[in-house]
């Protein structure tokens, strides 16, 4: 499970460096996200730009990660690829998450400064 993180002021960007979030890694993903979200900064942005495939197990793990965020925390998504976007739309989870086109668009390009 390859996740990389960057902290910028009050934002933590977690980039998933895996081509797939599927049943084979969903549990591990959920566990590692728990550690990165819990007690993290006020905003956590999950960068999915390298993920070309997500199944319902992976989607459930992303939902679980969001649910792990505290009441004062925001959990957001960025960089959904076409096929990942389709799964979010099919399951209507696109209405549940704040979704950014890509991480560089967050906070007026602040993310790029890192």
């Amino acid at each position: 499970m390859d996740l990389s993180t960057r902290d910028l002021d009050n934002i933590r960007i977690v980039t998933v460096n895996e081509p797939r979030i599927d049943a084979a890694i969903a549990i591990q993903f959920k566990d590692e996200m728990r550690a990165l979200v819990h007690g993290g900064p006020a905003r956590v942005v999950l960068d999915l730009s390298h993920v070309g495939f997500i199944d319902s197990s992976g989607l459930g793990a992303v939902v679980a990660a969001m649910k792990q965020s505290g009441t004062a925390q925001h959990f957001e998504l960025a960089g959904l690829t076409r096929s990942v976007k389709k799964v979010f739309a099919l399951t209507r989870m696109d209405r549940v998450f704040t979704i950014h086109a890509d991480v560089t668009a967050i906070n007026g390009g602040l993310a790029d400064a890192g």
């Binding site: 319902s56 197990s57 459930g60 793990a61 799964v87 099919l90 399951t91 209507r92 989870m93 209405r95």
Partner: peptide
């Protein structure tokens, strides 16, 4: 089906599979 009125803490973490298949 996902009910958009559901609170974040009550969101399902599974059960999406069959709705994807049926769609």
């Amino acid at each position: 089906r996902h009910d958009p009125k559901v609170e974040t803490r009550d969101l399902p973490e599974g059960g999406f599979g069959w709705s994807i298949i049926r769609d």
